[in-house]
Amino acid sequence: MPSIDDELSPLQLNRFQHLRHFLTIEGLSRKHLTDILDTADTFIEVGSRSIKKVPLLRGKTVANLFFEASTRTRTTFELAAKRLSADVLNINITTSATSKGESLSDMLRNLEAMAVDMFVVRHAQSGAPHFIAKSVTPRVSVINAGDGRHAHPTQAMLDMLTIRQHKHKFEGLKVAIVGDILHSRVARSQIQALNLLGAEEVRVIAPDTLLPPYVDQFGVKVFSSMKEGMRDVDVVIMLRLQKERMEGALLPSEQEFFRLYGLSQDKLALAKPDAIVMHPGPINRGVEIESAVADGPQSVILNQVTNGIAVRMAVMSMAMSGQIAELTADEEVA
């Protein structure tokens, strides 16, 4: 099955095989991912200081281009850029000139003319950040903040950072991803990252109606029941039920979904006693997760949010670094 990733992977690396954009996990090496996690670790230390700011991207400008609603991802990207001392533009797409008929391409060329150095892109269409990365000048890096059902690589990396903090390594880990796999770009990126980092087993647990076709080709074990799928897992990742993307009757009701796939204390008891519970947010309490579990001792949901800032700081500084290295190499050739 040809994927847009085949074309996209070389695009996100510079001639030294370092990140220059960050569009997808697919096509990256384990070393790329480990470098991101190690760099993010150092930014966690920065976040614990009284002055939570380093001058690394001072004088650089980052534009947040969110063509789709987001609060957590947009604010953590904004905080990450600000903690790197970059200037941040939040382009409100709904009130911007695109709603006056300006084309996407014209808008991007205008931002380039303002010497913006990085675009953080969220878009409902799969492949939109890829399209933008192909069209930008060599002085712009593009970061994918979630595209359609395709990928959400910074979310996957903050999840990997959270897992590594609590479990220390990926070898031997059994990870269950539960719920709305069909609509989840997060799940796709997580599965790729977990397999690349050497997790022993990645499971998906969902009703047939919420699984994408050919899911078994993703390198996962598929379970339709929590009772079997949850057994002995080290990490449980709950996904949000994406009601806004559902067309037609994929579920009998939310109550029915919660009864079968919602994470309750009883179902969590099937996992290892030290299993951690994750959720990319926003949480639908009582739909995919019980409040007692979301707020319970095994939940690391708020650690994920904190780690999101560190991972985004890492990815932005690495992509900017890759852009600079490429520009410097171009100058030497010229």
Partner: peptide
């Protein structure tokens, strides 16, 4: 680790072996 404070980031980029300050 002064990697985040270097004055040559815009010429040579990020030190790939950056460690946390403590």
């Amino acid at each position: 680790d002064i990697s985040f404070y270097r004055d040559d980031f815009t010429r040579i980029g990020l030190n790939p072996k950056v460690k946390a300050s403590s």
